[in-house]
C-alpha cells in the first residue's frame, strides 16, 4: 500500500501567519491537482474554527503564529486530533530542534506528521505526509530523525552503537513512517531484507517488533526519546 496510491483529492485547510508562505503553499498544492485547499488562515484560533466548519481530510499548519508566536500550531494540532480523530495534521516547522517534534508526538503519533518548512518546495514529500496522516499513520522529517539519532547516540549505552550502518538507515526510514515496502524502495533493497533488518533492530533495542507502521514509528521514537 503506497501513500501515493490513493487517487482521491484531499480536502485540506492551511494555516500560516505569513501571507507569502500561505499563498505559496496553497498554489503549489492546488497546482498538483491532488489537493483542494478549502481555506488558508493566519491564526491557530481561526484554524480550529474553520476545521470545525469545513471538516477537511487533513490540515497543514505552521507552529509559530499570533498572538504569542510560540507553539500555537502544535496546540491546535492536539485539539483537532482530540475533536476529530479522522482528520490528519501535518505540522510545518522552521525548527529542526527535536523538542518540538516530541511536544507534538508526546501523546501519540497516529495521524500526525512533523515536516520542516524546507520541504514546502518538494511536492512529493508534502503529499506523502498528507496522505500518511489521512490514513492515520505518521511521518517525521528525516532531518529531525537524524537529530534524534545523533542526540541519542551521544549518550553512553544508547544501544545505537550495536546497530549496523544499514540497520541505522532502515531505522531512519522507519521513523519517517514508511512501510517495509517503502523502505525497500528508498534503500533499493528487497522487502525480505528489510524485514530481517527490522526484526534485528527491535531485538537490539530491546523492543518488541510491531506490525502497524505508525506503531513502529512510535516504538522508534519512544526509544530515541527515552
Amino acid at each position: 500500500m503506497s501513500p501515493l496510491s490513493s487517487e482521491r483529492i484531499l480536502r485540506i485547510v492551511i494555516a500560516d501567519d505569513h501571507y507569502l508562505v500561505r499563498e505559496g503553499v496553497r498554489m503549489l498544492l492546488e497546482d498538483s491537482g491532488e489537493v483542494e485547499v478549502l481555506d488558508a488562515v493566519g491564526t491557530a484560533t481561526e484554524l480550529v474554527r474553520r476545521v470545525g466548519e469545513l471538516h477537511p481530510d487533513a490540515v497543514m499548519t505552521d507552529i509559530r503564529m499570533p498572538p504569542s508566536h510560540q507553539m500555537e500550531g502544535i496546540e491546535a494540532a492536539h485539539r483537532i486530533r482530540a475533536a476529530h480523530p479522522e482528520i490528519g495534521v501535518v505540522v510545518l516547522s522552521q525548527h529542526a530542534d527535536e523538542s518540538y517534534a516530541f511536544e507534538l508526538l508526546k501523546d501519540g503519533t497516529a495521524g500526525l506528521a512533523y515536516l520542516l518548512k524546507d520541504r514546502v518546495g518538494d511536492l512529493d514529500e508534502m503529499m506523502g505526509a498528507l496522505r500518511a496522516v489521512c490514513a492515520g499513520r505518521s511521518a517525521i522529517d528525516a532531518r529531525v530523525v537524524d537529530a534524534l539519532v545523533a542526540r541519542r547516540a551521544r549518550r553512553e549505552q544508547s544501544g545505537l552503537e550495536d546497530l549496523t550502518p544499514r540497520e541505522l538507515d532502515v531505522m531512519r526510514e522507519m521513523a519517517q513512517g514508511k512501510s517495509n515496502a517503502g523502505i525497500a524502495a528508498a534503500l533499493v533493497l528487497s522487502e525480505s531484507a528489510i524485514e530481517k533488518h527490522v526484526s534485528s533492530i527491535f531485538s537490539k533495542l530491546g523492543r518488541p517488533g510491531e506490525s502497524g507502521v505508525h506503531r513502529r514509528v512510535a516504538a522508534v521514537l519512544a526509544f530515541l526519546q527515552s
Binding site: 500560516d16 505569513h18 507569502l20 499563498e23 505559496g24 498554489m27 503549489l28 524546507d118 514546502v120 518538494d122
Partner: peptide, 11 residues
Amino acid sequence: QEIVALIARIG
C-alpha cells in the same frame, strides 16, 4: 518565511 515562500514558489 520569505525564503520558505520562495521555496514553495520554486516548487
